[in-house]
Structure formats: structure tokens, C-alpha cells
């Protein structure tokens, strides 16, 4: 009996190990592939210059800046809205059917294909609000796209804050707002940060939502205001791979763009992990 269960356990561990190795291999080869192909494009002009000679030379500066703007814009849209919604759902709303329906809807929204968000953005922000194809429209669209994720992550983080901490705060004479602002949100911050990282990754990488709302095929200049349309890395990759007359040269530039995208997202994750670790070291 005992021997048998030990063997089963060994087998289980081995299976887990194999799964982990496969996952790491996939991730590792992906990073290696992007890195080895993309690094050759890197140079100072690649980061700063505009595309030249029908996208076979020059740089992708406007696309980098455009993507950064769109990411920041979408976070500005989604973070306050998402966190406030999560606070409402956790701390204020009565725990009833309606709230459960809201939560269910939010979770379903997370599964809606991104191109649908793109069409929605086109209809509402570009046309109805007349924001045109612009960083503003794109940020709003991407913001709504990542909103469900931010709400879910914040909700889970806030609901996981022990009730005993809230009680301690109230017992000392704190109001509900003080308790939320000074105790609950700081304690929930690591979880909220995780939501932000995932949101940044998604906002940086999505093409479909910005296709009709923000992205432009080609720009001679950096975007000048939130009402400008803009180049963006994922869309630029798409363009490089599907249009133009020098596919081989363009492919290498596309890998360069992919590598920048990867580095941007990894950098944001790195910062968030650092912040989380720092908080844990301090108070864990």
C-alpha cells in the first residue's frame, strides 16, 4: 500500500516536472526566437527615427511612442474605473443577485473578442463622440478592453483582505472611506498591480481594437496630441508582414518591433514585481 502510494506520488511529481519543463521550453524558445531575430535591427536610429524608404530603413520611433501613449492612456481609463468598480462591488453594494449578475457580466466581457471592442470603439468613440481616429479613441477602446481584467483582479485582491483588518480599523474610529483608503487598498495593492501588468501586456499587444480607432499605417512625425492618430508596434508588425515590396527586409524590422514590445511588457512586469517584493519584504 505504502510503496504503491509513494510510487504514485513519484509519478505525479514526474508528470508535474515534465509539464513545467515543456512550459519553460515553449517560453524560452519564444523569447530566444524573437531575441535572436530582432536584435539585429536594434540601433539608436531604429528607436528614434521614423520609417524611411517605404519601411525598409529608418526606425520605428513613432510606433514605440504611440504604443506607450496608448498603454498609458488605456491604464488612465481603466485603472480608476476598474478599482472604483471593484471597491463598490466589495465594500458598498449589498451582496445580492444584481451584484452577482454584474460580476458575471464583467467576467463575460473579458471573453469578448477584441475585434468586437474595436468595432464598438469605432461606432462610439470615433463616430458618435467624434473623437476621430486618435490616441484618445484608441485609449478609450483599449481601456474598455482591459477593464474587466482590472476589475476582476482588483475585486479578488480587495475581497481577499482579511475582514479582521477592516474591523481593527473601524474599532479605532475610522470611517469606511478611511478604512478603504488606508487599510484595504494598500493591502490589496499587490493584487491590483498584477491586474495592471496583465492589462499593460494586453493593451500593448492588441491590434484589432486600435485598427479602426487609433492606428495609422504610416506617420512622418511623432504624434503631437491625443487627437492625433498614431503608429503602434503591433499594427506596424502587421503592416510590415503583409504590405510592401521587400518582405525579407521588412520581416527583420518586424522582429525588431516584436522584441521592443516584449521588452516593454517585461519591463513593466519587472517594475511591478519589484514593487510587490518591496512591499512583501517590508511587511511580509
Amino acid at each position: 500500500m505504502i510503496i504503491k502510494s509513494i510510487n504514485t506520488q513519484r509519478l505525479g511529481f514526474a508528470a508535474l516536472f515534465v509539464c513545467i519543463i515543456i512550459a519553460l521550453l515553449v517560453l524560452g524558445s519564444l523569447i530566444y526566437f524573437i531575441f535572436s531575430n530582432g536584435i539585429s535591427s536594434f540601433s539608436w536610429t531604429f528607436f528614434t527615427d521614423i520609417p524611411r524608404k517605404s519601411m525598409t530603413a529608418g526606425g520605428v520611433g513613432p510606433a514605440i511612442i504611440g504604443t506607450i501613449y496608448l498603454v498609458i492612456g488605456s491604464i488612465i481609463v481603466a485603472l480608476p474605473l476598474g478599482v472604483i468598480t471593484a471597491i463598490y462591488l466589495c465594500e458598498y453594494s449589498p451582496k445580492n443577485l444584481i451584484v452577482n449578475i454584474i460580476r458575471l457580466s464583467v467576467n463575460n466581457l473579458a471573453g469578448v473578442p477584441s475585434v468586437v471592442f474595436g468595432l464598438f470603439g469605432l461606432a462610439v468613440f470615433v463616430k458618435l463622440f467624434n473623437f476621430h481616429v486618435s490616441i484618445l479613441s484608441g485609449s478609450l477602446t483599449l481601456g474598455i478592453l482591459i477593464l474587466p481584467g482590472i476589475i476582476s483582479a482588483s475585486y479578488e485582491a480587495i475581497i481577499a483582505v482579511p475582514q479582521s483588518l477592516r474591523e481593527a480599523s473601524y474599532a479605532l474610529g475610522a470611517t469606511q472611506i478611511q478604512t478603504i483608503g488606508r487599510i484595504v487598498l494598500p493591502a490589496a495593492l499587490p493584487g491590483i498591480l498584477t491586474g495592471i501588468i496583465l492589462g499593460v501586456g494586453r493593451a500593448a499587444g492588441e491590434t484589432a481594437p486600435i485598427l479602426f480607432t487609433a492606428a495609422t499605417f504610416y506617420a512622418r512625425t511623432y504624434p503631437t496630441s491625443i487627437m492625433s492618430d498614431t503608429m503602434a508596434l503591433p499594427y506596424h508588425i502587421y503592416v510590415l508582414m503583409t504590405e510592401g515590396t521587400h518582405p525579407e527586409v521588412q520581416k527583420m524590422i518586424a522582429y525588431g518591433c516584436a522584441l521592443i514590445l516584449l521588452i516593454l511588457v517585461l519591463a513593466v512586469s519587472g517594475i511591478a514585481i519589484y514593487l510587490r517584493q518591496r512591499q512583501r519584504r517590508k511587511y511580509g
Binding site: 482579511p162 479582521s164 483588518l165 474591523e167 481593527a168 480599523s169 473601524y170 474599532a171 479605532l172 474610529g173 475610522a174 470611517t175 487599510i183 494598500p186 493591502a187 517590508k282 511587511y283 511580509g284
Partner: peptide, 21 residues
């Protein structure tokens, strides 16, 4: 009730310090 809770302190079953210094 805020005044009341300042006047009437409470210590709970499980120690519940805030995750702060």
C-alpha cells in the same frame, strides 16, 4: 459611532495588526 468607538476600544480574538510598521 466614530466618537463611540474612540471611547470604547476593542481587542479581537486573533491579533490583527495592520501590514504596516
Amino acid at each position: 459611532v466614530v466618537e463611540l468607538r474612540r471611547k470604547v476600544g476593542m481587542v479581537f480574538q486573533k491579533p490583527n495588526p495592520f501590514p504596516k510598521s
